[in-house]
């Protein structure tokens, strides 16, 4: 459940600050690029989770965290950070807590991305 203290799912103002450009020509490719590449990474991470490959979980969540930070996907970034920390500490308990929330959180972010892209005129 998301409460009011949670950071935004997707904060476009962060993306604008990061890229130093508020034009749709910059924002749309960044969001689309993020969506496509992050989709690939999330699939790999879920696979790694099934195989209990903790090193790979750490690597993938680390990369996802960086991508999220760049486009302002704040909530998902925090989750990736938690998963990365747990994986690096080989903390099985915390991994077991966080990993089931990964896929639903990604779906929420995907929906938000879709909505934002539609608002920006991206088909």
């Amino acid at each position: 459940m998301i409460n009011s203290a949670d950071p935004p799912i997707l904060d476009i103002s962060i993306l604008i600050e990061m890229y130093g450009d508020s034009h749709a020509d910059t924002i749309i490719p960044a969001l689309v690029g993020f969506r496509d590449e992050a989709t690939d990474y999330t699939e790999q991470l879920q696979q790694a989770a099934q195989q209990q490959d903790v090193a790979e979980i750490a690597r993938l969540s680390h990369s996802l965290k960086g991508m999220c930070g760049l486009v302002g996907a704040c909530q998902f970034m925090l989750l990736c950070q938690k998963i990365e920390d747990a994986a690096r500490q080989w903390n099985q308990q915390r991994l077991t807590d966080y990993l089931p929330t990964f896929e639903p959180a990604w779906r929420v972010l995907l929906a938000e991305l879709k909505s934002n892209l539609r608002q920006l005129g991206h088909a």
């Binding site: 990061m18 890229y19 130093g20 960044a30 690029g33 993020f34 590449e37 990369s63 960086g66 991508m67 760049l70 486009v71």
Partner: peptide
């Protein structure tokens, strides 16, 4: 950078 998004960002800047 092995993340394309990040690599493109660095490249663009």
């Amino acid at each position: 950078d092995d993340v394309n998004l990040m690599c493109d960002f660095l490249y663009g800047v």
